[in-house]
Design a protein around this nucleic acid. Sequence first.
DNA 1: CATCCGACATCAG
DNA 2: CTGATGTCGGATG
Length: 903
Amino acid sequence: MTSTEIHDKVQELVNNFNTERFIYDLLRAYGISKTSITRLQKGDFNLAKNKDEILYKKKLFFKEVESDNLMALVDDYSKDENLKHNPRFIIITNYKEIAAKDTRTNKNLQVSIKDLPKNHTFFLPWAGQEVYTASNENEADRKASYRMAKLYDILIEENPEILENGVRELNLFFSRLLFCFFAEDTDIFPIEGMFTNTLMQHTQKDGSDVHLYLDKLFKALNTKDNSKQASYISQFPYVNGGLFQDVISIPKFNKEARNILEESGELDWSHINPDIFGSMIQAVVNPDQRGNLGMHYTSVPNIMKVIKPLFLDDLYEELEKAKGNSKKLRKLLDRISKLKIFDPACGSGNFLIIAYKELRKLEIEIWQALLETEPQQSFIYSNIQLTQFYGIEIDDFAHEIAKLSLWLAEHQMNKYFENQLELGKSNPILPLKASGNITHANATRVDWEDVCPKHKDDEIYLLGNPPYLGRSLRDTKQQEDMDFVFQGKKNYKDLDYITCWFIKGSNFLKDSNSKLAFVSTNSICQGTQVSLLWPHLLEKKLAIFFAHQSFKWNNNAKGNAGVSVVIIGLSNSFNGSKVLYSDIGYKYVQNISPYLTDSKDLVITNRYSPLSNIPEICLGNAPKDGGALIISDTEFEEYKNNNQILKYIKKYIGANEFIKGNYRYCLWLTDDDIKEAGEINEIAMRLDSCKKMRLNSKKKQTQKLASIPHKFGEIRYKKSSSVIIPSVSSERRNYIPIGFLDKNWIVSNSAFVIYDAEPWLFGIISSNMHMVWVKAVAGRLESRLRYSSQLCYNTFPFPEISKVKKANIEENVYAVLEEREKHPEKTMAELYDPDKMPKGLRQAHKDLDEAVERCYRLQPFQNDTERLEYLFKEYEKMIAKDTLFQPARRGGKQKKTRKKKVK
DNA sequence: CATCCGACATCAG
DNA sequence: CTGATGTCGGATG
């Protein structure tokens, strides 16, 4: 059975939806035999213990519920150890939505029933087809892109002098080349293939005169009257549009380069998306230009994730409502001919192009609906103009490409329009006319309303993928941009550069009928940045009306940026239902919080001392030594028989070492040691290199440390046992592995430490309650959990508990430690891998979780959502109390009084 | 003085 | 070369 057949059967099931038969119809759609299904219905294949459940060996576990919280239930069942017979899928439905988990791949799906056909591939393993990851990207785009990259490399090698005048000429040359390839395949040029064919006929095979030919051609394309030229040149039309205006020096070709031109000409460029230009620049430009501002090209699937919820879904819904009513349909045509699309970081214009194309497609559908009720006599012209599209781009070349690409998109869509509508007609494309309103400027500095005028009742959609730059990656100029945008505001320097776009965007939305949606680094919805940014936006009464939770950035360019992104849609006049998207599907929610979760707008602010009555936590010891004080395994081998050195060496452990079950060594010298130790050659050399590194630092604090190179930069070590908490840990784990260490370990700054901690505290921070909290409020490294003292530990609400309860928690802690000791050969990574976690350890943690939960309330929690809600409430209560009794608190003083109470 | 972060950085397979 | 998963020192409050 093919995938399409399955899709059609699932569609049929949805069309004739019947709750009684649903799950059987679904299995049937995937080719499960009639007899099996009958036996499952009768009961002898159904292994479930409860009446309202179905358990089909190796196939599925199915349950119908009334709740809305489907995914949480699926998760609960998938973790249930009493669930036998290895069902491949766990499926829960309320017959509006369906949630499912593939127990082998751990992939989740949550969609409304009507969207099941679109997602039919999820259950393909039933039909014996393992999940394959189909590429959404256009194969032809990629081929062309790689060819251009290769050509670029050859031309650079053949013309070493070409970059002397900067890359602009070479880039412009490539953009002309791309235009010609496109033009010859899409009747912009009168004869198909005329660019490549003429070039091949009139140049030598060794490529030596290709540059002369191209120079002649490019000049001709910029000349209105070419009648005096030879016919092979004069047959080309006048293009202009600024593209061929400047005279540039054309690079010299060799045989291979000419061959690439020939091969490229053979590709069918008419099928290439004009947005490929963006991708090409990315793949083609000099490697050290890569990753520059505006060079991050957004893939079409990702652009669709923005424009569909932002305006397209809504417009299609209007179309459905208007069908059969000419007046309404005409009104809708009028509406889309007036709305404005504005990308204040447009790069080479990908968002604008896709938005343009989608609106043209929609326009055709409206016309088709209109023609059914109101047959037309005269020709139909499109009313969507390139001038409805606005953009700001800081890079001159990219902004030229954006204009060019919009022309090409217009040409493509004109063809499509004429194909789809019998009466459809368009004006000629050449010579090129007004394109989109693309402004070459710094978006953080210009007034956006100068670029895209905002009149009363204008329907404007802001979209795009502005640049992300964390605190330390900005240059001076960009820092000044932020100072400019955040004038009069405090504490903005830890925010990402992209927040400039959110601030300016939220100002633009004020008193207008506009909405905004940007692709952003997920950092602005995590950790410290949440409390620094979101109050500014929320105070303007803006709401997140849709959002897409974190997903890994990717596009079809050669090297992908390493970042996880979110999509945030903001609106100031929104009364519809809010939609929260994720990789597994979407759900309608009451509210979307700044953390992009289904909860109210609570923002957790970092704290310098614990909110609850628990001891102080601190970061580990930071060497700040350029590696000079750290001793690797192999280096230790050399020293291990040298007692003189050995006495100054301690075991050194950080997050990585603790989780992977190994450790390094470090030099640990006190002021008293320095004289004796300094005479040992190896140590003296290390101290010297540490000193050099510190002196070379830009930072004053580090420079000062150069006077004491024998010591770590930050020392928090105490001669006592400690609890170690890795600062970064994989999000796959159910628990961050936490450990006890004796006084002989130096914990590095990649982990947090609580010195002198009692076992009950270990229990609390290891508990699921704490993990639920951490997952909600912690910063992240991409999507990894990043533990921190200020955000995770100091904010954690935990009640005062009795000695009896402490003792009870401690018993459970010992049980966890015992279970770990049963597997001395296993690392923490292995012990806490959710797929391989030993049963005993899992149980011990479960028992510990329960003991901790009982400190909050006796009635057990149903799921993690309920736990988090409870914790948020407790947090608010404790914060209110905290500020009430200690209005003017300072971190330092508070710490001391707290500490005394604990001891 | 004490971090929390990174259109990342680095290792294993 | 890709997937998995956490270093290290700076800019900042």
